[in-house]
Amino acid sequence: MPNWTAAAAMLVAVLFFNLLFTPSFFHVAIRDGRLFGSLIDILNRAVPVGLLSLGMTLVIATGGVDLSVGAVMAISGTVAAGLIARPPETPFAGGKSVPALAIPAALLAAMGCGLFNGILVAILDFQPIIATLLLMVAGRGVAQLLANGQIVTFSEPSFAAIARGATAMLPNPVWLLAITFVLFSLATRATALGLFVEATGSNPSAANLVGINARAVKIAVYTLCALCGGLAGIVITGDIQAADANNSGLYMELDAILAVSVGGTALAGGRFSLVGSIVGALLMQALTTTILTRGVSPEITLVLKAAVVVTVCLLQAPAFRDSISRYLPKKVPA
């Protein structure tokens, strides 16, 4: 039984609740040549956290954590918007609008952030939580400096298409997440890279002894994680056609960590499940969309989410499952 069974069961339960109480939830129509409905919203809105959770899964599998991805989102979004809008009184002022450069530059900036994290953790031996906390705080400041404290708005159809367009009936971000997921899965499961990551997470010294360069693995996963943050930042920025350095990706790193742990990846490192993280991200978004559709008051929302997370985590815990099964009618003993 995979580790993410509990999360998947809860996801089904949330959807079933909607089937009973909000029948319109499952209504999917075709509008402007694309699918349209609450289910599609869940897929579409889960993309930023889903992307973050893929990168976060690998980082957590090496026994680390990356708190900076939310700030990286803000940086990448601001760089992209800056190169398109060229707002005055910012480092981007002056020059021509270069939409073609926006995405490569944003992703490069994000990877630079990841490299910084990786070097702090792998070479300088910082505690991951401290190393990435640095960029979590400073990164948002950098993004605000790049935007001069303003929300950078722009109108660029080609860039907005990434977040708002649709291909083969589904929103483009959903495809982006699907492709990223397939690439990550192939890289980690079709090659030995996944094993390297797990070995580094279980015991870096032992991994070194068997010839795995644990430092290189760590630098690579932090860079990949930041790259995912960069992608998520582009999606969010394209979606609202504006880079909001103050709020883009704020606290989203925590949502990603939650999705990863709900999805059955051990926070101590050593084993991971990419599928689980995606299921986790979908579960959190399904909850959010359900709550919004039902019009539950915001104070209750957070408590409700916490209750679901605790339930999933309990169901995952072997100790809890054992203690429950003691009270359940025993299966026929062998």
């Binding site: 319109s24 209504h27 409905g37 609450s38 919203d41 809105r45 919004l292 559709t293 039902r294 019009g295």
Partner: peptide
Amino acid sequence: EALLKSPV
């Protein structure tokens, strides 16, 4: 988005 798809 969610509101527009809700019962109200």
